[in-house]
């Protein structure tokens, strides 16, 4: 990707204290939940947002080791290196790791796929609810951010879910100052999002500052892909090339890492965090021109497609 631009002045050089303030806010939220909840758990998928959350949990507890377990809901369709990364991180931080798989829910009959190749992504929530009931978790710490999509713009930092896991906008509690109400009735639980106020750029800047390790998929690497519209579909055993497809090998990276069946890479030559920060900032610039509508680099678009169940 060509990083030259005709308006180079706009590269965000925000004073770094915004990262200090975001970090302090997240540490405060984590400590409130740890202090007030009976049995919190940290949802860890091996993605960059959960990697940041895990690092923040380490800082929130330090010098104690992280005092809650990690939970991964495995669709069974993850990249091997992400699973290896997940296990390595759990070991590094000396955390108990629970893995519950959608496969088990399918076997039990609580998840029924319409057809064998259907994406398992939407069914993670069923397996998650089963795990919450099994362990009796009263708070799940997650790495979701409000800037990911419009609907999340009004999600609370501490969000109450009923025993069906439903988010009921009408029954959300007002959140004022930094006074979080963590009380839940038996059977209900909290979803807590300490990095709600972070943007994708903040996350990358923090990863750089704190030198947080990520799975290699996040950095540019050669990969076989098929172009479907403006999406690059990785050629994998779950998403094989079909008759008539042109398979090409390009340099690309993933902006979000999740279920293989619904995560697409973007063309990129960014091999390290600094390059990714430049690219992430660059996205805003090229989009700003409004003449060339290149949406491959937008992860809002990807979220939308994920919601619509695109491949």
């Amino acid at each position: 990707m060509n990083l030259q631009t005709d308006t180079p002045y706009h590269l965000p050089q925000v004073a770094t204290d915004h990262l200090d303030l975001l970090e302090a806010e997240a540490l405060f939220i984590l400590r409130e939940v740890i202090a007030e909840c009976r049995h919190p758990v940290l949802l860890f998928s091996g993605g960059k947002d959960s990697a940041v959350l895990l690092h923040l949990a380490y800082k929130a507890f330090h010098p104690e080791r992280i005092g809650c377990a990690l939970l991964h809901i495995d669709t069974g369709h993850n990249y091997d290196e992400v699973i290896a990364y997940r296990d390595r991180m759990a070991e590094r931080y000396d955390c108990l790791l629970h893995v519950r798989s959608v496969e088990d829910s399918i076997r039990k009959g609580s998840v029924r796929l319409r057809h064998a190749s259907e994406s398992r992504n939407p069914y993670q929530s069923v397996t998650l609810m089963e795990a919450i009931a099994e362990f009796g978790f009263d708070a799940c710490l997650g790495g979701a951010r409000r800037d990911e999509e419009k609907a999340r713009a009004k999600e609370r930092i501490v969000s109450v879910r009923d025993e069906f896991g439903q988010w009921e906008p009408k029954h959300q509690r007002p959140e004022l100052w930094s006074l979080y109400n963590t009380r839940v009735a038996l059977g209900d639980h909290l979803r807590v999002f300490p990095i709600s106020n972070w943007t994708e750029l903040d996350v990358w800047q923090y990863i750089q500052r704190e030198d947080i390790e990520l799975p290699a998929l996040y950095f540019a690497h050669p990969r076989q892909v098929v172009r479907r519209g403006d999406i690059l579909v990785p050629v994998t055993h779950l998403t094989p090339a079909q008759a008539g497809d042109t398979v090409e090998t390009i340099s690309c990276r993933f902006r979000t890492v999740g279920d293989i069946s619904c995560t697409a890479p973007v063309a990129s030559s960014a091999g390290n965090v600094a390059d990714i920060i430049a690219e992430t900032a660059q996205c805003l610039l090229t989009e700003r021109g409004a003449t060339r509508l290149d949406d491959r680099a937008s992860d809002a678009a990807m979220e939308q497609r994920k919601k619509e169940g695109y491949f």
């Binding site: 002045y9 706009h10 590269l11 965000p12 050089q13 925000v14 004073a15 915004h18 409000r146 800037d147 419009k150 609907a151 713009a153 009004k154 906008p169 009408k170 959300q172 709600s196 106020n197 943007t199 750029l201 903040d202």
Partner: peptide
């Protein structure tokens, strides 16, 4: 996004949005 929610009768609520310039991050 809010209008669709209004049509569905969901309580309209505080929404948080983010933007940044070369000088500052805004919430």
């Amino acid at each position: 996004g809010l209008i669709a929610e209004r049509e569905q009768g969901i309580t309209i609520d505080v929404a948080y949005r983010y933007f940044a310039t070369a000088r500052r991050k805004f919430i």
